[in-house]
Write a protein that binds this DNA or RNA. Structure first.
Lengths: 189, 189
DNA sequence: TGTTATTGATTGACCAGTCAATTAAAGATG
DNA sequence: CATCTTTAATTGACTGGTCAATCAATAACA
């Protein structure tokens, strides 16, 4: 019917988006390949053809989410001074493209996946290390205990995400950001 | 073979423990009824007989975890003065019986279940409300912004739990507690 | 005898992954 | 340019396996 060449990257991207959408909306990794493929407008067989397995598709989707987040931090980082850098990291974490309900829900499910899947665990460690190191660089000039504050901020981000997605209704980035900013005021006072 | 009467509560308790163990160790809700029943020393059919469905078994297990936690808070609460109450809540949250790896792992999986299962969501809301209200009572005499601090503490507990279970190796309650205590020092300063 | 405890066997559904077959584009050949 | 070849894209149909849930049957108590 329509075998244009160069379909691979487009198909893969469509499948990754569909996977995040389906996982996010189902609130669970228990979504079928057929479900994802249908949403991406193709047959399940094609999804297997491109990713080899459901697991690989999930890992790619996780990579994608983490990369989007990493990019938005990197883009925001060259803020003015240490405090600007700190604010940039925080704000990127709660920027609209990272704080959509389906994204957070998928994110949470990938966290759980990291309990069983070594590759998912590795991806998560990379993300955690990068966040930690970004925070340290920003915090060193601002406080005498940058490590402890960085760890608290990291945990607080996760906790706020968790609570945001568990609360029914629209996810509220403003409230989340306020919580983060208030903590930072206290910590740097 | 051995049909003593009054087996129901014993069997149910055994199944709930086995469910938490299996979910915690697998790091996933994808554990079979057969697996759980085998660990509890009975046939899968009997598990269905007592709980009616896998879902009900999971919900009972979640109730159990939340109740154990609630009880340990209640037992610790009559501390001396507001600060004693606050410390009691925090320490109960990281007490050994609540901070075992399989318990936390199961806890995390139940959080995820609450994304899809309305009853699980309800249980979680009850727990959140109770924690919040306990914290408010303790914090009101200690700070001028008890609500905001209570919310931050709640999120921080979740975040610290999350990171504790994701870090490989033995779960470290001491480090977790230190993070909590340091935040509280800052917040009440 | 009626009730509770218990299980082996079975069923019905679902699903990841495979495979052979089909279509059409791109490139080669004369 | 016409045709042949190779290669990518794509799917329908199928398979093997898994698992929750059911049920009929058995065993032991009161």
């Amino acid at each position: 019917m329509m075998p244009k060449l160069g379909a691979e990257p487009i198909r893969k991207a469509a499948l990754i988006n569909a996977a995040i959408y389906e996982i996010g909306h189902a609130g669970s990794l228990d979504v079928t390949v057929a479900q994802i493929a249908r949403r991406a407008g193709m047959s399940p067989a094609l999804a297997h053809h491109y990713f080899g397995s459901k697991e690989q598709m999930f890992l790619q989707a996780m990579r994608y989410i983490l990369r989007i987040y990493g990019d938005s931090v990197k883009r925001a980082l060259p803020g003015s001074g240490p405090r600007g850098r700190l604010d940039a990291i925080i704000e990127a974490s709660f920027a609209p493209q990272n704080f959509r309900r389906d994204t957070i829900s998928a994110w949470l499910n990938f966290y759980v996946l990291a309990l069983t899947n070594p590759e998912a665990a590795r991806l998560l460690r990379v993300y955690h290390r990068r966040l930690h190191s970004n925070l340290i660089v920003a915090l060193r000039p601002l406080t005498s205990h940058p490590v402890r504050t960085a760890e608290t901020i990291g945990a607080l981000i996760d906790g706020v995400y968790l609570r945001a997605v568990l609360k029914p209704g629209e996810t509220d980035a403003e409230t989340a950001l306020t919580t983060m900013r208030e903590y930072i005021e206290e910590a740097l006072a």
